[in-house]
Structure formats: structure tokens, C-alpha cells
Design a protein around this nucleic acid. Structure first.
Length: 553
RNA sequence: GCGCCCGUAGCUCAGCGGAUAGAGCAACUGGCUUCGAACCAGUAGGGCGGGGGUUCGACUCCCUCCGGGCGCACCA
């Protein structure tokens, strides 16, 4: 609330300075009100004079002096203005305004930090969408957390958010899975067959075959191959997806829509997309295949869209899939993809653009791989070979809270080294506990207060707040709306973790120096109000991260 | 070879064009008869891969080189 208000005051001051002839009448440039890194530079600082100097034809410090003179803020809002450094104006707030934040946060409650910048626009966040050919692995965990936290952030910003999982149940990979299950099925009934070279080799494949054998007996041995593979594929995909759904739910990731690629193909949507592309002259036939002119949209070569067999490539159905999302009324589509798909971005964007979808309607959020190590040894993961660490194993080892925080903490664009052994050993040192501990301490204070009959009440005497440590905490709490906005609009969930740590640190400092429960009922009530405000913010941030805010630890 | 991404403290990572680049872990020192010590206070440790450029100001933007990752399928 402070930053926005200050920005307005400064804008007005620039106008007044111009009217008074202290500044030439120039267009007001974009300027910032920010929290200075060094607290000695005040509570807030603005670079308004620096960005104004050139157009004003004066030195930044002269402009700053003029602005300060024209501003002359109310004494109960701003305690001091100071021109410093190259021409910053440093701002120190007065206590009456500082205290007003406590009342504001208490009034807004759990809604504090939300905004309406999304204006109800409909957003589809598609994430995870792992091939339904085996258990989710630890790399997927990163995708799950990035997508889920981003969805939470967008909802807090006033977007109408749908979480979606695209099930690739139509292509070669699920066919390979079916053939792998088939091999185990025959083996199960004493007719050993090797798992195909390009099949899936994990133990779970044998489990899938055994489940079919137990349910249906040997009757598929003599069934027509096509019917058998169809059935095996369908049953196996359903089982794998069910496992994924359960693992994700345990990780507190719940999807609104599970969208089947197969259903899309059956509906004829893919054919219609191709017909449309053809009508617009973006496809041609060559070498017995149908090609899409993706080079027209910056791709480095044209892409096959229909194979010689008449089957779709994944790319064809992907275009139809995104068109389907548009048809369902989404203004914005955000796909969360691992870095290994980066080469596909241009063609999918191109395909949609060719069909008249505006480029800004699709955003692809690329995140770097999770590199696995075990005690320093690099671990190569391969779902085909059945060599991977599952998401479930990770959660078993470190828990949901530490796992989610761990993934959320790192910027999507940064490769993440993940030492499994270290993750186990260090789960007790996970920064999430620092944050959760602050919340548990707050809960403890409020328990004690209730037991002693103390409470902030509806109108605590906030004028009793005058300690700089109290303000340091409030100052941090004031940033929540800004943090949610930045994290959501920039698609950078990790900012929440940095902020959560700052809030916890400010609270721990406050706790160490400012005794809450004491002999002075007025001071106790005022500080309890601060504690409640801190609890509101911590809950909110942890809630957005999908991490528990514990009452006790 | 081409395209995209990443190089910041011993390790893992933050850093929104601004003032003396931060945190966690690891190391070392000190603090519990008072609301929870999963905490706090302090010491030590890097000048941001190299070089140019833009800017009043660059870890941040541009160019280039070096190192690493991913991709360059009729797999998804």
C-alpha cells in the first residue's frame, strides 16, 4: 500500500514542480519506488529525479531538490525526505502511517495480497502431462510444483485458472508400453517373450501384465493382436494415470481437467485442424508425408504432420489440442515444459499462428532439468530402461513440505542439482523449516495469549508501536501484494520462497527483541495485532506454495 | 554446424537497470530461570566465466569469445 501511494504522491509532486516553474513541463517518465537494499537509505527510495534529469536539462540532484520542495508530504505520513547519492530521494515513513498497515492487513484478512490485475481472464495452465508410460519421476516433481504454484499465484491475481493434464495416450509410446506389457503377459503364461528393444523395462511393466492376467486369465493369448494391444494399452494407461493422480494428489497437486489425446483424435478435431491448415496453404505433400510449413514461422525446417502410415505425428494433435483450449474459452494458455522440448516451441507457436491464434495467447514456460546425483555420482535417468528415482520415493524421503519448497525455491531457468542422498540427510535443514518455525512460534504466542485472556481486540492501541523492529516486520509484510504480483506476472514462483524467508527472518528478529506478552495490556494488545498480521502473511505465502503452516512443530 | 538455456562465496542458489552483491548449507565464536534455541548475535569467505559496448549508473541490456546443458525424429 505504501509504494503505490508514494508513487502517486511523487507523480503529483512532479506536476506541481512543473507548474511552479522549478521543472520544465516534461512527460513524466517511468520511475520506481523501491525498498533500498541498505536500510540506512530509508524505508523507500525513488529514482524519479534520476530518470527525469535528462529531459529536465538539470543535474539529478537539482531535480531531486526541486521535487522534495514541491512534494512537501504530510507529516503524519512521511517523516523525512533526503536527497542522497547520485540523486535518489530517500523516504522515511512516519509512525502513524506505518501503524495503519496493521489495521489494513487485519481488515483484509486472508484476502490480503490479492489483486484484480487478472480481471477474471481465463487462464489454462497445462503442466506435468508426463507420458502415461510409467511412474512419475523426480524431474516431474519440478514441473508439478512450478505449474501448481504459478496457478495459485494467477488465481490470487484475479485470473480464473484451470489446471490441466494432457494425457498422451494416442501415440507410439503408449503402443510401446502395450507391447511391453504383452511380452510380460505371454511370459506369465509360460510363453516367454522378450520385452521389445524400444519398450519399457521397469518392474512396473510386469506388474501391469500380472494385473491383467489375474483379471482376465489367459484369454488374451489367442485374441487378435490388434484387440489385445488395444486392451492392454487402455488398461495400462488407465492404471499408470491412476498412480500419477494419486502421487500428485499426495504432493497436493490436483488437476481440474485430465485431457485425453485419444479422445481428441477420435473427435475428428485433428482432421479439422489439418483441413484448416491446408485451406490456408500451410501444408504440402512430399515423400509420401504431409508437411507443415513451420519455416514460415521461424522454425529451422518444415515438420512432418502426417506420417506415411496416415497416422498423426504428435505435433498434429498438439495443434488441435491447443485449438481445443481456445475453443473452450481460454484467453491465455500457459504450458510448462522441460528444457528438452525447447526445440518444439517454434513449430507449435507457428502452427497456432497459422490458424489465427494470436502469439501472445500461448506462453511456454521452460524449466531446466533436475540433474540427479547420488553421493556426488551423476545418475542417468531413463524411463525406458526403468532407471529413475520416482517422485513417490522423494516424497517418502523428505516429505511433501520440504519437497515442494525445495522445487519451488529455484528459478525455473536455473538447472537444479539434486543429490538424493544429500536431500535425505538435509531434509532437516531445508529452509522451509525456518519459515514454518516462525508460524509455529506465532501460533504459540497466540495460544499463550488466549490462555492468559489477552487479545488484540477490535481496536488495539496501535500508537503503542514505536520500535524499529516492529516496523521492520511491518515493512516486510507490506511487500506481499508486490511479491505476488511480481512472482505471478513474471512467472517466477521462486520469489515466494525468498519472500517467505524474509518474513520469517523479520518475525524472528521481532520476537527476539520485542516481548509480546507482558504486564502492559496496551502494548500487549498492539503487538498481538502485529503478530496476527504476520500470521496472515505467512499463511498466505505458505498457502500459495502449497506448504503447511503448522501450529506446532 | 545451427537454435535455445545456464555460468554469482567451498557447495546449492537468490539478486526487479540503481547506492558498500545476499541467503542457506559447510567452518569458527558467543547467547536459553522470561511468549518455542528448528532461534538470535558475530567471524571468515566472492566482485559476478573473459573481453568489448550502451547508460548518469550494468550481476542485470547488446555484441563477441570460453565453459557446461538441452534440442536439431515419421518419440512425446
Amino acid at each position: 500500500m505504501f509504494r503505490d501511494a508514494l508513487r502517486e504522491e511523487i507523480r503529483a509532486a512532479i506536476g506541481r514542480a512543473a507548474v511552479a516553474g522549478r521543472l520544465p513541463p516534461v512527460a513524466v517518465p517511468a520511475f520506481e519506488v523501491e525498498v533500498p537494499r541498505d536500510r540506512r537509505h530509508g524505508d523507500y527510495a525513488t529514482n524519479a529525479a534520476l530518470v527525469l534529469a535528462k529531459a529536465a536539462g538539470a543535474s539529478p540532484r537539482q531535480v531531486a531538490d526541486a521535487l522534495v520542495e514541491a512534494w512537501a508530504p504530510a507529516a503524519d505520513r512521511v517523516a523525512a525526505l533526503e536527497v542522497a547519492g547520485p540523486g535518489f530521494i530517500n523516504i522515511r515513513l512516519a509512525w502513524p502511517w506505518r501503524r495503519a498497515l496493521v489495521a489494513a492487513i487485519r481488515a483484509e484478512g486472508d484476502g490480503y495480497g490479492a489483486s484484480t490485475v487478472g480481471a477474471g481472464r481465463r487462464v489454462n495452465v497445462e503442466f506435468v502431462s508426463a507420458n502415461p508410460t510409467g511412474p512419475l519421476h523426480v524431474g516431474t516433481g519440478r514441473n508439478a510444483v512450478i505449474g501448481d504454484v504459478l496457478a495459485n499465484l494467477l488465481a490470487a491475481l484475479g485470473y480464473q485458472v484451470t489446471r490441466e493434464y494432457y494425457i498422451n495416450d494416442a501415440g507410439q509410446q503408449v503402443h510401446n508400453l502395450a507391447r511391453s506389457v504383452e511380452a510380460h503377459y505371454f511370459t506369465h503364461f509360460g510363453r516367454p517373450r522378450p520385452v521389445p528393444e524400444d519398450g519399457y523395462h521397469g518392474d512396473y511393466v510386469a506388474d501391469l501384465a500380472r494385473r491383467i492376467a489375474e483379471a482376465d486369465g489367459p484369454r488374451w493369448l489367442e485374441a487378435p493382436e490388434a484387440a489385445r494391444l488395444d486392451h492392454f494399452r487402455e488398461v495400462s494407461v488407465a492404471a499408470v494415470i491412476e498412480e500419477a493422480r494419486a502421487d500428485l494428489a499426495r504432493f497436493r497437486v490436483v488437476f481440474d481437467v485430465w485431457f485425453s489425446e485419444r479422445s481428441l483424435v477420435r473427435s475428428g478435431a485433428v482432421d479439422r485442424a489439418l483441413a484448416d491448415l491446408r485451406a490456408r496453404d500451410y501444408v504440402y505433400e512430399a515423400d509420401g508425408k504431409t508437411w507443415f510449413r513451420s519455416t514460415a514461422f521461424g522454425d529451422d525446417k518444415d515438420r512432418v504432420i502426417v506420417k506415411p502410415t496416415g497416422e498423426w505425428t504428435y505435433f498434429g494433435s498438439d495443434i488441435a489440442y491447443h485449438l481445443d483450449k481456445r475453443a473452450r474459452g481460454f484467453d491465455l494458455m500457459i504450458d510448462v515444459w522441460a528444457i528438452d522440448h525447447i526445440g518444439d516451441v517454434a513449430r507449435v507457436r507457428g502452427g497456432l499462428q497459422a490458424l489465427g491464434v494470436p502469439p501472445e495467447a500461448l506462453e511456454i514456460l521452460i524449466y531446466q532439468h533436475v540433474r540427479l546425483k547420488n553421493e556426488g555420482e551423476a545418475l542417468r535417468m531413463s524411463k525406458r530402461r526403468g532407471e529413475f528415482v520416482t517422485l513417490r520415493e522423494l516424497i517418502d524421503a523428505v516429505g511433501v513440505d520440504a519437497g515442494r519448497y525445495f522445487y519451488a525455491m529455484v528459478a525455473p531457468g536455473t538447472p537444479m542439482d539434486f543429490d538424493v542422498a544429500l536431500a535425505r540427510a538435509h531434509s532437516q535443514d531445508n529452509p522451509v523449516y525456518y519459515v514454518q518455525y516462525a508460524h509455529a512460534r506465532i501460533a504459540g504466542i497466540l495460544r499463550e495469549a488466549a490462555a492468559a485472556g489477552a487479545a488484540a481486540g477490535s481496536a488495539p492501541p496501535l500508537d503503542r508501536l514505536e520500535d524499529e523492529r516492529e516496523w521492520a516486520l511491518l515493512h516486510t509484510l507490506a511487500e506481499l501484494p508486490e511479491v505476488i504480483r511480481a512472482a505471478g506476472l513474471r512467472r517466477e514462483p521462486h520469489r515466494l520462497c525468498a519472500y517467505a524467508r524474509e518474513v520469517a527472518e523479520a518475525f524472528h528478529l521481532f520476537y527476539t527483541h520485542c516481548r509480546v506478552l507482558g504486564d502492559d495490556p496496551g502494548l500487549t494488545a498492539a503487538r498481538l495485532a502485529v503478530v496476527e498480521a504476520a500470521r496472515t502473511v505467512l499463511r498466505r505465502v505458505l498457502g500459495l506454495l502449497g506448504v503447511c503452516a503448522p501450529e506446532r512443530m
